Simulated scan of single mutants.
Amino acid sequence: MAEKQSILNPEMKRKILAVMRILLLTAALVYLLIFISNNLFVDDQINVYFSTEDAQYLVAEQREIIEDDDLYFQIIAELNKGPESENLSATIPEEVELLEYDLDEDVLILNFNSALRENHWGGSTGELLTIYSIVNSYTALNEVQSVQILLEGQEVETLVGHLDLSRPLMYNQELVTDN
């Protein structure tokens, strides 16, 4: 027994092809609009982290960035300025400078002057908040997964004796609060 085949007439085929073309063009336009909006409207703000008043947690503050300036130097400059909120405390010792940096794949190597150690107020909590205010601020960038800290171009085991800096550090969510 022969199967019955339904044959679309040429007019019906043209209509189906026209609808398919419209759908394909619409999908392409939507994709293009999303792509353009993601790339044209680049976020011009960064998060930098400061200590809560009780020195237990870090809280992010948003800061405006200058598009033509080096982003990595802008982050440490914002950390050096300290918090804008009266409920937060600075985490970076005075006179700290970022001498240079290198992004090796997704590891950011930050080379600071010795003021990071010499001017630090000490204590295990103070060291933890200082280091992770730096690490969390930089790892908030998409291209940075971890941060290695150097002092005057040298690897260091610790800043002031409490936190292991011999390896790159990743974002620490446990220290962050919304406060």
Score class of each variant (00 low, 15 high):
I131K: 11
L33V: 14
E127W: 07
S89V: 10
E143S: 11
E100Y: 09
S89I: 08
N38S: 01
D106P: 06
A90S: 15
L151G: 05
L25V: 11
T158K: 11
G126E: 14
D104P: 03
L88Q: 08
I131V: 15
E97Y: 08
N142P: 08
N113Q: 13
Q62C: 03
L103V: 12
P93Y: 07
E155P: 04
H120W: 08
A77C: 00
Q74L: 04
I76A: 03
Y138F: 14
P83H: 03
N80L: 02
A27T: 09
I109R: 00
A77D: 15
A28Y: 03
N142T: 07
T52E: 10
L71G: 03
I109T: 10
I66F: 10
V30C: 12
G153C: 05
E53I: 07
E78I: 01
N47Y: 10
T26M: 09
I149Q: 13
H120N: 11
Y101L: 05
E94M: 02
Q56C: 06
E78Q: 11
I149W: 13
R117A: 12
L116G: 13
E152C: 04
L99G: 07
G153Q: 07
L25S: 09
N142Q: 12
Q56S: 15
F41Q: 14
E157F: 06
A115Q: 08
G123F: 06
L29K: 06
L25P: 00
S89E: 14
L151E: 11
L79C: 02
D44K: 13
E105R: 10
Q45V: 00
F112P: 10
L99C: 06
A90D: 14
D104V: 10
E64D: 12
S51L: 04
E100N: 15
Q145I: 02
L79I: 05
L151S: 06
F35R: 09
N47A: 10
N47D: 13
I65A: 01
E143H: 02
L25G: 01
L29M: 13
N136Y: 12
L40A: 09
L129M: 14
L129P: 13
L141T: 07
A115S: 14
S146E: 15
V96K: 07
A140L: 02
F41D: 14
F41C: 02
Q56W: 08
L98D: 13
A140Q: 02
V59C: 03
N136H: 13
V135C: 01
S137F: 01
T158Y: 15
A140P: 00
L98I: 07
L116P: 14
